[in-house]
Write a protein that binds this DNA or RNA. Structure first.
Lengths: 240, 240
DNA sequence: CGGGACCTTGATTATCTTCAATGCTAGTGG
DNA sequence: CCACTAGCATTGAAGATAATCAAGGTCCCG
């Protein structure tokens, strides 16, 4: 991990740059390329749907601040949050549409048009080679998260689902330079948590309390403190 | 759907050709291109792991006959079948390795090296344009299946999971020209079904019986007859 | 005929959901 | 400043869904 490049205060593009360079080293030139290619910011109020038909086609959006989610709404009103977008993540509208999902702001969200960034990252211009490599690894990571979520939902208990999920969030936030060794932010309601983890609100609430009672975490005000990193990692039903 | 191209007896490549042309029309030339680029067949006994280190790197394999699965093994012996490979599907060893999965033969399986097919389908040679388009759509479909499976596991009951899953299998087999309007093959044990759908064997067994009692399906000898296509589709907790 | 893999069944228990309140806190308007 | 409201978190009780445990049963194959 290129520690040097992790500068949380480096502007709205910094989480994305940190994220990419945590996968494959980027030069300052690469970082600048990302920064300069981001488009105008846009704000989405909490709980609003994030729509994409903004004039010229379906452009990828980078989440600059706040959390968003890709959601499947079922006929009976149930919903499944398929994936989450944290600062630094990029939402691909074409994919959202193809999968029959919708995107929602879980908190107040600020996005920026990332069309030109994605274009650079997927071009075969040698000047973008480092960016392209990091981007490929990033895509792989995104896909691996889907697979991991299938394993979570299919074979882990509520307790392990939450632990495993918090572990994933911690890793993601650290890569983006947005969390320290011991804590992570969790600015989503227990209802959203339930809809992501395939559980009821009530059960999420009780399981979180259990985690607190077991002294694995503290949780309040949208922030999780990892009290026992060892026990935390150990309690995961790990894949082999 | 290009009905003309669906010829179940057209050799081992036919399922793949049917599958691709169900997504985007292929000419006879395209079909020939696929057929001629397939490598030597290889047999995998039922329940064996499908390994890839065969001399020259990790080459994609097309399933020519039988069913395979990508599996995650958990420490405690539980397992999750993340995805299934039916005839016509292509297994990407690089992906299996990246996701920390392993591939197993659920039945006796015959595969063929599909490296040159994938190369053609992902090239930008204009001669492969039709193939490339179908391939892109196919990749999208594969990804959509992962998302759909997340929704199944997260928000559907055992009964609906099985119904929805059978619906998916029916669609896949029809695209490959390997099933008619009313029936599909299901050559996997109830244990494998359980490991895919995140349920216990016993519960899968009882739920299948419930489906039979409700006259939605008949099920015996690895074959499912769809008795009530309307009720079948209606019972699905559909995404919107 | 014996063994093994798979399917089926009953009984019991655990996990998780649902329903129905009750708190808590922050923002709002009087 | 103080009700008042809305959204979220929490709690208890009851019930449904699914897992586990422990046998049998069936079928195929050597």
């Amino acid at each position: 991990m290129t520690v040097l490049s992790i500068r949380p205060g480096g502007g709205p593009a910094q989480p994305l740059i940190n994220l990419l360079s945590s996968l494959s080293p980027l030069s300052d030139t690469d970082a600048t390329m990302v920064r300069e290619r981001l488009g105008e910011p846009r704000n989405h109020p909490s709980a609003a749907e994030i729509r994409f038909e903004e004039g010229h086609g379906e452009r990828p959006l980078m989440v600059a601040a706040g959390w968003a989610a890709e959601v499947s709404l079922l006929e009976d009103g149930r919903r499944q949050i398929v994936s989450l977008h944290l600062p630094g993540d990029i939402i691909d509208p074409a994919e959202v549409r193809r999968m029959n999902l919708s995107a929602y702001a879980l908190t107040s969200v600020r996005t920026q048009d990332a069309n030109r960034v994605v274009a650079a990252a997927t071009s075969d211009d040698p000047a973008c080679a480092a960016l392209a490599k990091a981007w490929r690894l990033h895509r792989h990571m995104v896909q691996a998260r889907l697979v991991r979520h299938i394993i979570r939902l299919g074979r882990l208990t509520a307790y392990d689902r939450i632990t495993d999920f918090l572990g994933e969030l911690h890793d993601r936030q650290r890569r983006a330079g947005m969390a320290d060794h011991r804590s992570l932010s969790l600015p989503m309601t227990q209802e959203a948590l339930a809809d992501h983890l395939g559980l009821s609100i009530v059960h999420v609430n009780r399981t979180l309390q259990q985690l607190r009672r077991d002294s694995l975490i503290d949780y309040q005000g949208g922030r999780v403190m990892v009290r026992d990193p060892a026990g935390f990692a150990a309690s995961l039903g790990r894949t082999g």
